[in-house]
């Protein structure tokens, strides 16, 4: 009995030590960035392999459904893609001349011209993280040149930014996360604002818009490039709702992200101001 009693006492003592350790860790982690290196080390070498193994069945199923798709379906898709490609190429034709014209005009104005952007396609490994954090893990990391704060976009708009870089994977915070905000500009009127996430993948709050705003539902909001984190002129959201609040300082404006935040399988990483490599 004596030994049992002693073991219990030391157990309580050990719990207290563990609790103090945990609370210290949490405080440091919340206030400073010093633990991030440990986090990314363990993340790269223990968690990433586990995530990789766990997502194998899902990826295999995806792959299988692709390879088992009927010939007819493939033909239809092929046809569709060809049409789309043709349309895009036509637009591209115009774009080339427009770009040249733009460069000429910029030269006339003696302003620095756009160098262009380099992109890399990354695959989303998991979105199933902490339920209250809108975050995705992608399969490109430090090895591929990904850096902290890099913009992540998909085919239809801005998705988020990189918040954690591991060796072969990285985590991106989505624009819909409650702790994320990015500077925007209306494509039509040029009104500048800030879009803040609210934890809902289909809604953003646009902050500090005066009541006499010219914004209308359906307006396209694009990145303004202010702050230097996101490259300018990428579509972000469509204004969904403008509620004028007389007596209050600002109107209540919400917008719907154009990117498919909860559905995209592939995302693009953008390196701004680097000439695109062919």
């Amino acid at each position: 009995m004596q030994s049992l009693f002693q073991q219990n006492v030391s157990l309580t003592l050990r719990l207290i030590i563990v609790m103090i350790t945990c609370i210290t860790l949490m405080t440091i982690d919340h206030r400073q960035q010093t633990l991030n290196s440990i986090r990314s080390l363990i993340g790269s070498y223990i968690i990433y392999p586990l995530q990789y193994i766990v997502t194998i069945p899902v990826r295999t199923l995806d792959h299988a459904s692709e390879s088992l798709a009927s010939r007819r379906a493939l033909l239809t898709e092929n046809e569709q893609l060809r049409t789309e490609n043709l349309q895009l190429q036509t637009q591209q034709l115009k774009l080339a001349s427009l770009r040249q014209e733009n460069a000429r005009l910029r030269e006339l104005l003696h302003s620095s011209s756009d160098v262009g952007e380099n992109t890399l396609v990354a695959e989303v490994i998991t979105v199933d993280q902490d339920f209250y954090k809108q975050q995705i893990i992608i399969n490109k990391g430090e090895y591929h040149g990904v850096y902290l704060g890099q913009a992540v976009i998909d085919a239809s708009g801005v998705m988020g930014q990189i918040i954690e870089v591991n060796r072969h994977s990285s985590a991106a915070l989505l624009i819909s996360d409650a702790s994320h905000a990015l500077p925007l500009q209306s494509n039509r009127s040029g009104t500048r604002t800030i879009a803040q996430g609210k934890g809902n993948p289909n809604e953003l709050d646009l902050l500090h818009i005066p009541n006499n705003t010219g914004l209308q539902p359906g307006d396209l909001m694009i990145t303004s490039g202010l702050g230097g984190r996101f490259p300018p002129n990428y579509p972000v959201a469509l204004v969904a709702n403008v509620v004028i609040q007389p007596g209050k300082q600002f109107a209540k404006v919400t917008a719907t992200p154009t990117a498919r935040l909860d559905k995209s399988r592939e995302v693009l990483l953008v390196w701004p101001n680097t000439p695109p490599q062919k």
């Binding site: 609370i23 210290t24 860790l25 949490m26 982690d29 986090r39 995530q51 993280q129």
Partner: peptide, 13 residues
């Protein structure tokens, strides 16, 4: 904690 992206020590506690 590392896998879920929560504060280090939260799940541990």
């Amino acid at each position: 904690d590392i896998a879920m992206g929560t504060l280090l020590g939260q799940h541990a506690l």
